[in-house]
Design a protein around this nucleic acid. Structure first.
Lengths: 151, 151
DNA sequence: CGTGAAAGTTAGAACTA
DNA sequence: TAGTTCTAACTTTCACG
């Protein structure tokens, strides 16, 4: 990836609502040159989308959990991610090295909802689970690429 | 949080670059009513920012790791998140229930960089680490609130 | 919350190195 | 291929009802 593209990605990772005009000023390019590059980065899949960072507590999903999963039947074909894909409470799915196969990040409204979610996960993917409850989130979703933002 | 606000947050979580005009059409409000509500949600901290979702591999940070940390001195005041805050490779910091105190998510360019990062984490926060390497990421950073987007 | 007008932004066509 | 400039259509912002 080229240097100008890297800079554009970095700027959008820090603030996805920047105008092409502002991106142009920050990169020394014209508005339409930036526009063209952003379109190309989107087509290539380098820019996969744009998300508002929402305060989960204020949005009514105050409980976060990290769920490690292990298939019950190690011989079965491993389609765990596909089987869990439609469970909207699951934010991320990582295939990991180590004792367990996957780590999921989930967001729910409370302990009752977590209990139900775990049952759904086990049933949908035929796995056992080991759950780590998140007590608080000092910080989250910073853009490793991005210049630190101070909103 | 009110129903209209919830809807606005949901829409921006799915696509942070939506115009106020489009948000208005989707909510049945006028452009300026939406604008007003978004400003209020930003001020209250419900909307904490806007980020481009970047393909980490294409952006030159292909290695993701989950790092569990345990303070070496359990009697020392626990300021681990503050001590780690300036390490840009760390994307998130969760305080967790369980054997360990925190789980960090990190993004680095390769194994060598991970080794250096772990040394910096241990030195900065006086902790031991247990690292789980992410082999692949079937999906990530979906908006639990958001209607699934298909870009 | 809505309206409306001024200021600013986007998207794309035409042109240039 | 990658960039600029130009321009019409659209979006944001803000004072006012």
């Amino acid at each position: 990836m080229e240097d100008l593209d890297r800079r554009i990605v970095e700027l959008l990772a820090a603030d996805a609502r920047l105008s092409y005009t502002d991106l142009g000023k920050s990169t020394g390019l014209s508005t339409s040159a930036v526009h063209q590059r952003v379109r190309r980065l989107e087509e290539r899949g380098t820019l996969r989308g744009y998300r508002a960072v929402v305060d989960a507590e204020q949005a009514g999903m105050p409980l976060t959990a990290l769920i490690s999963v292990t298939p019950v039947d190690p011989a079965a074909p491993d389609d765990v991610p596909e089987r869990l894909h439609d469970i909207r409470e699951l934010d991320s799915c990582f295939s990991v090295a180590g004792d367990e196969s996957y780590v999921l990040k989930a967001r729910v409204a409370g302990p009752g909802e977590l209990e139900l979610l775990l049952a759904r996960v086990r049933a949908a993917a035929n796995v056992t689970t080991r759950t780590t409850v998140v007590l608080s989130t000092p910080w989250e979703d910073r853009s490793p690429l991005a210049t630190q933002s101070h909103p």
